[in-house]
């Protein structure tokens, strides 16, 4: 190969990588564009303020209630597990860290089945089961976020604390305080992910056209309203489904973009 063909090949292949990039981000804008244009049609105060089938107020409230209970389960367990892994290193801690990584790849539908067997089949607490399913998905991410955040706290801080006579728990509390922003970031990103999960809710929280009545009943959610309404052979219902999708995508993208701009943090897979 002479120099000219080599240079030509260099140019062609480099342009192809740009093409690959453009091909990949077309769906992003296409999907967002579709949701905006179809979602705006039926988006009004009635959609936000009424119960189904006129609106989806209970789904907006339900999404956040399910998320709040998910936090109650996943945050204490996840953060404390992360503390152990980061502060008491050893073969067991390393194994737990690896296990958490592997568990972050558990398909969401599996979390739904597990929560069905453990919670729904025994207590019929559908709403609680939804939160349990989502906390199975969230827990590994919280563990790893806490671990990474604590590991990035400089050791000199711990040494200073110990030198002043602080016991280990106080030293760790100081390290946690330094790492809290980073942990919050991880929690927010994974909250954004689980808010869009639908598959686990099919087996658990499901669909409700009533006001929120407690975690032992069906609890409506935005993701489930999208799933329910868009399969109706009814134009008005479908338009309302797209509006729910628009609200959902706005919340999720706002969290993702906000976190990225404020912290320059990468998306966790």
């Amino acid at each position: 190969m002479n120099l000219r063909t080599r240079r030509a090949k260099d140019k062609v292949m480099k342009s192809l990588t740009l093409v690959a990039f453009l091909v990949a981000i077309v769906p992003l804008f296409y999907v967002i564009g579709t949701v905006i244009s179809k979602g705006l049609v039926a988006l009004n105060w009635q959609a936000l303020g009424e119960l189904p089938p006129l609106g989806f107020r209970n789904a907006i409230i339900g999404t956040f209630i399910i998320l709040a209970v998910t936090w109650l389960i996943a945050l204490p367990v996840g953060i404390m597990s992360g503390v152990y892994i980061a502060e008491y290193r050893g073969i067991f801690a390393r194994a737990m860290s690896f296990l958490a990584d592997v568990m972050s790849g558990v398909p969401s539908i599996i979390a739904g089945i597990v929560s069905y067997v453990v919670v729904v089949a025994t207590t019929r607490a559908f709403g609680l089961a939804g939160s349990v399913a989502l906390s199975i998905l969230m827990l590994p991410v919280v563990i790893r976020s806490t671990e990474e955040a604590l590991k990035s706290v400089p050791n000199s801080l711990r040494e200073a604390s110990t030198a002043l006579g602080a016991p280990k728990w106080r030293t760790t509390a100081i390290a946690l305080n330094t790492a809290k922003g980073s942990i919050a970031t991880g929690v927010l990103l994974s909250s954004a992910r689980v808010m869009g999960e639908t598959a686990p809710l099919i087996m658990t929280a499901g669909y409700s056209q009533w006001e929120f009545m407690g975690m032992d009943c069906r609890v409506n959610s935005l993701a489930y309203v999208v799933y329910e309404f868009l399969r109706y052979p009814d134009k008005e219902r479908i338009a309302l489904g797209w509006s729910a999708a628009l609200i959902l995508i706005i919340i999720i993208l706002a969290i993702n973009i906000g976190v990225r701009i404020l912290t320059r943090r990468k998306y966790e897979y």
């Binding site: 990039f21 990949a24 981000i25 769906p27 992003l28 296409y30 999907v31 967002i32 579709t34 949701v35 179809k38 969401s108 954004a192 992910r193 808010m195 869009g196 999960e197 639908t198 598959a199 993701a223 999208v226 799933y227 868009l230 489904g241 999708a245 959902l248 995508i249 999720i252 993208l253 993702n256 973009i257 990225r260 320059r264 990468k266 998306y267 897979y269």
Partner: peptide, 25 residues
Amino acid sequence: AILSLFVELIAAIPSIIIGFWGMFV
């Protein structure tokens, strides 16, 4: 960083919305 963000945002879109986009569009 912004170009990377675009790629990563695709992963943030809920599966259910991608599915209905696939169905309708």
